[in-house]
Amino acid sequence: RHRTIFTDEQLEALENLFQETKYPDVGTREQLARKVHLREEKVEVWFKNRRAKWRR
Score class of each variant (00 low, 15 high):
residue 33 A to T: 01
residue 5 I to A: 09
residue 38 L to F: 13
residue 42 K to F: 06
residue 1 R to Q: 14
residue 8 D to W: 05
residue 37 H to Y: 03
residue 47 F to R: 00
residue 23 Y to T: 11
residue 28 T to Y: 03
residue 8 D to M: 11
residue 27 G to V: 12
residue 43 V to R: 03
residue 36 V to R: 00
residue 32 L to P: 03
residue 10 Q to A: 08
residue 40 E to R: 08
residue 34 R to M: 11
residue 48 K to E: 09
residue 51 R to A: 04
residue 7 T to E: 03
residue 52 A to V: 05
residue 23 Y to A: 03
residue 11 L to D: 07
residue 43 V to N: 00
residue 1 R to A: 08
residue 17 L to F: 08
residue 52 A to S: 10
residue 10 Q to P: 00
residue 21 T to G: 07
residue 41 E to S: 09
residue 2 H to C: 05
residue 21 T to S: 11
residue 45 V to G: 12
residue 49 N to C: 06
residue 5 I to G: 14
residue 34 R to I: 12
residue 26 V to G: 06
residue 36 V to H: 02
residue 11 L to T: 08
residue 4 T to E: 15
residue 41 E to C: 05
residue 46 W to A: 02
residue 26 V to F: 11
residue 44 E to S: 11
residue 44 E to H: 09
residue 27 G to D: 10
residue 25 D to A: 05
residue 19 Q to L: 08
residue 52 A to L: 12
residue 31 Q to L: 09
residue 20 E to I: 11
residue 17 L to A: 09
residue 7 T to R: 04
residue 41 E to P: 07
residue 11 L to Y: 04
residue 48 K to F: 03
residue 7 T to D: 08
residue 25 D to F: 03
residue 3 R to H: 14
residue 2 H to W: 06
residue 15 E to K: 12
residue 42 K to P: 07
residue 34 R to V: 09
residue 34 R to C: 06
residue 17 L to K: 07
residue 49 N to P: 01
residue 37 H to D: 12
residue 18 F to L: 02
residue 37 H to V: 03
residue 43 V to Q: 00
residue 51 R to I: 07
residue 17 L to Q: 09
residue 29 R to M: 13
residue 24 P to V: 01
residue 42 K to R: 15
residue 40 E to C: 13
residue 32 L to I: 11
residue 16 N to F: 10
residue 55 R to D: 06
residue 24 P to A: 02
residue 49 N to I: 10
residue 30 E to Q: 12
residue 17 L to V: 10
residue 21 T to L: 01
residue 16 N to R: 13
residue 38 L to G: 00
residue 2 H to T: 15
residue 33 A to K: 01
residue 15 E to M: 00
residue 30 E to C: 13
residue 17 L to Y: 02
residue 2 H to I: 12
residue 17 L to W: 02
residue 20 E to T: 12
residue 33 A to G: 12
residue 46 W to Y: 03
residue 46 W to K: 04
residue 27 G to Q: 15
residue 51 R to F: 07
residue 27 G to H: 13
residue 16 N to H: 11
residue 19 Q to P: 01
residue 26 V to M: 10
residue 40 E to D: 12
residue 33 A to R: 01
residue 31 Q to T: 13
residue 50 R to P: 00
residue 33 A to L: 03
residue 34 R to H: 04
residue 32 L to D: 02
residue 15 E to V: 01
residue 50 R to W: 03
residue 55 R to S: 12
residue 32 L to C: 03
residue 19 Q to E: 03
residue 32 L to T: 04
residue 8 D to S: 12
residue 35 K to L: 09
residue 38 L to I: 07
residue 21 T to R: 04
residue 2 H to Y: 06
residue 25 D to S: 10
residue 54 W to E: 14
residue 18 F to G: 02
residue 4 T to G: 13
residue 32 L to Y: 04
residue 19 Q to D: 05
residue 37 H to A: 13
residue 44 E to T: 10
residue 31 Q to P: 02
residue 19 Q to G: 06
residue 22 K to M: 13
residue 26 V to K: 11
residue 30 E to T: 09
residue 16 N to K: 08
residue 32 L to A: 03
residue 37 H to I: 01
residue 3 R to S: 14
residue 4 T to M: 12
residue 5 I to K: 11
residue 29 R to D: 01
residue 14 L to F: 02
residue 25 D to L: 01
residue 54 W to Q: 10
residue 50 R to N: 07
residue 14 L to C: 03
residue 45 V to P: 03
residue 40 E to Y: 04
residue 5 I to V: 10
residue 4 T to F: 13
residue 53 K to L: 14
residue 11 L to W: 05
residue 36 V to M: 07
residue 12 E to D: 14
residue 45 V to C: 15
residue 29 R to S: 08
residue 29 R to F: 05
residue 20 E to D: 10
residue 13 A to M: 02
residue 27 G to S: 12
residue 18 F to V: 05
residue 27 G to L: 07
residue 9 E to H: 14
residue 6 F to M: 07
residue 3 R to A: 07
residue 29 R to Y: 09
residue 13 A to I: 05
